[in-house]
Computed example of a mutant assay.
Amino acid sequence: MHDDPLTPPFATKIAVAVRDDLESWQRLNVTAFLVSGITAADPELVGEPYVDADGHQHLSLLGVPILVFEASAETLRNARTRALERQIPSAIYTKQMFATGYDADNRGVVAAVAGADLDLVGIGVHGPKNAVAKILKGAHLHP
């Protein structure tokens, strides 16, 4: 095994699960926010900037695969619990966050609710492949 997280075979994986009753725009929005949380927590997963044949530089991207799943509200709650039990950090998005206007308000609506009572619409995790698979047990690959 090698130490470079950006070179296959990948020892870890990123997975995002969004609730199966969301509108399409909500699923995309939640996925983007959750992946940004994982990126902020693990900047070593970001590759080098892209440069096209004309020499124009473009922003760096995550250098590892991301799997996107859909799941029921119950499966998301269970995934949060399993992530906590396995000490795998998670990015979360709650239903109440759709009604806020900015980051501080988002943190406020999360802080107002006990963890077990969060109305999760999405969760993102990055960790060892087997742990991530167990955390997202019951979720299905997004169609």
Rank of each mutant, 00 (worst) to 15 (best):
residue 118 L to K: 11
residue 98 F to W: 11
residue 85 E to P: 09
residue 81 T to R: 15
residue 103 D to P: 03
residue 81 T to L: 15
residue 90 S to K: 01
residue 60 S to W: 09
residue 7 T to L: 14
residue 63 G to N: 09
residue 117 D to C: 09
residue 101 G to W: 03
residue 99 A to K: 08
residue 46 V to M: 11
residue 131 A to I: 14
residue 2 H to N: 14
residue 24 S to Y: 10
residue 83 A to D: 04
residue 112 A to S: 15
residue 74 E to D: 12
residue 71 A to D: 01
residue 98 F to D: 01
residue 63 G to C: 05
residue 141 L to M: 13
residue 29 N to Y: 10
residue 140 H to I: 05
residue 118 L to S: 08
residue 35 V to I: 11
residue 64 V to K: 00
residue 137 K to M: 10
residue 66 I to E: 03
residue 64 V to E: 00
residue 20 D to K: 11
residue 90 S to E: 01
residue 35 V to N: 00
residue 43 P to H: 10
residue 112 A to Q: 13
residue 33 F to S: 03
residue 71 A to T: 02
residue 73 A to Q: 10
residue 138 G to E: 04
residue 97 M to N: 03
residue 94 T to C: 10
residue 33 F to W: 04
residue 99 A to T: 09
residue 113 V to Q: 10
residue 88 I to E: 13
residue 42 D to C: 04
residue 54 D to M: 09
residue 58 H to M: 15
residue 116 A to W: 11
residue 90 S to H: 03
residue 108 G to A: 14
residue 86 R to E: 12
residue 50 Y to K: 14
residue 10 F to W: 10
residue 73 A to S: 15
residue 81 T to S: 14
residue 137 K to S: 11
residue 61 L to N: 11
residue 81 T to N: 12
residue 91 A to V: 03
residue 110 V to F: 04
residue 5 P to M: 07
residue 139 A to G: 07
residue 106 N to W: 09
residue 61 L to D: 05
residue 3 D to V: 05
residue 57 Q to K: 15
residue 12 T to D: 13
residue 65 P to Q: 10
residue 141 L to I: 07
residue 111 A to Q: 12
residue 10 F to Y: 14
residue 22 L to W: 06
residue 37 G to L: 05
residue 111 A to S: 14
residue 10 F to A: 03
residue 105 D to G: 05
residue 130 N to V: 07
residue 2 H to R: 14
residue 128 P to Y: 09
residue 39 T to N: 06
residue 9 P to E: 04
residue 36 S to V: 01
residue 21 D to I: 07
residue 109 V to R: 00
residue 73 A to P: 02
residue 64 V to I: 14
residue 15 A to E: 04
residue 116 A to Q: 15
residue 26 Q to D: 08
